[in-house]
Amino acid sequence: MGLLDNMKAKLGPAKDKVSDLAQRQRGSIEHGLDKAAKVVDEKTKGKYSEKIHAGTGKAKEAVDRIAQRGERRPDTDTSTAPGGETAQTPPQTPPEGPPPTS
């Protein structure tokens, strides 16, 4: 087993704990992000409001992604692609050449 395999094996349980924590504490985490964003916005006197708002939104999306990892089961959820999008099969192209005659 290589170094990466060893690290993945040891970090697997931690990843599950983090996603479980994010699921259970999602509301508290988002409340804390909003509170921190408000404080920073006040300290900067609104100069970076747009960037603070964008960063807060991205942080909330990251919490949601982490929490959803624990909700999905790899052995039962094969309908989503790695980016979280629904996996779609590519359209079938007809074979080249003339159509068959009967």
Rank of each mutant, 00 (worst) to 15 (best):
T101V: 15
S79E: 13
A87F: 14
V63W: 02
D16P: 03
I66V: 15
A67I: 02
G12P: 00
K35E: 09
D41Q: 08
I66Y: 02
P13N: 03
N6H: 15
I66R: 00
K47C: 03
K58W: 05
K8T: 07
A59K: 00
A81W: 08
L4F: 15
V39T: 14
A22G: 01
K15H: 08
A22N: 04
S19F: 01
T44M: 05
G55A: 03
M1A: 15
D34H: 09
L3I: 15
G84M: 06
T89F: 09
L4V: 13
K43H: 10
G12I: 05
K43G: 04
K43A: 15
V18K: 01
S102Y: 14
Q23Y: 00
G32D: 09
D75A: 11
A36T: 12
D20V: 05
H53R: 12
G57F: 01
P90D: 12
V18L: 11
P90I: 07
Y48N: 11
V39C: 05
E61P: 03
Q92M: 07
H53Q: 12
T93S: 07
G12D: 13
Q88E: 15
H53W: 04
K51N: 13
M1D: 14
R73C: 10
S19E: 01
D77H: 14
H31A: 13
